[in-house]
């Protein structure tokens, strides 16, 4: 299963340890994480389910393209990194 990890800056606000969850898209991976950690959703996504403007997601070393539908494909071997943009501070 893909492994997903979160910027340490989030840990100041809520616990979100790395996880291995099923999912073939970024959205599916995040939904699986949110199922166990519903508070996390609003920290990463806005009211319409879009990736927040100052949050970035990488699949391995590639930044995701679709910030709206979060449809970028993820394979079982991938690592998903949720990071804090340097903008927005």
């Amino acid at each position: 299963m893909p492994r997903v990890s979160f910027t340490g800056n989030l840990q100041r606000h809520l616990s979100c340890p790395p996880a291995e969850v099923a999912g073939e898209t970024v959205r599916a991976v995040l939904q699986a994480v949110f199922a166990d950690n519903p508070r996390l959703r609003s920290y990463l996504l806005d009211d319409q389910g879009r990736l927040r403007r100052h949050v970035n997601i990488f699949i391995n070393d590639r930044m995701v393209h679709d910030r709206c539908r979060l449809s970028d494909q993820v394979t079982d071997a991938d690592e998903v990194f949720v990071v804090q943009a340097l903008s927005g501070g």
Binding site: R27, S42, D46, D47, Q48, G49, R50, C68, S71
Partner: peptide
């Protein structure tokens, strides 16, 4: 948090409001 209802399916709400 106060939040706007979804304007549609994920992605379809690209222009939908967000607090």
């Amino acid at each position: 948090t106060p939040a706007f209802p979804s304007a549609g399916d994920a992605g379809a709400g690209a222009d939908g409001p967000s607090v």
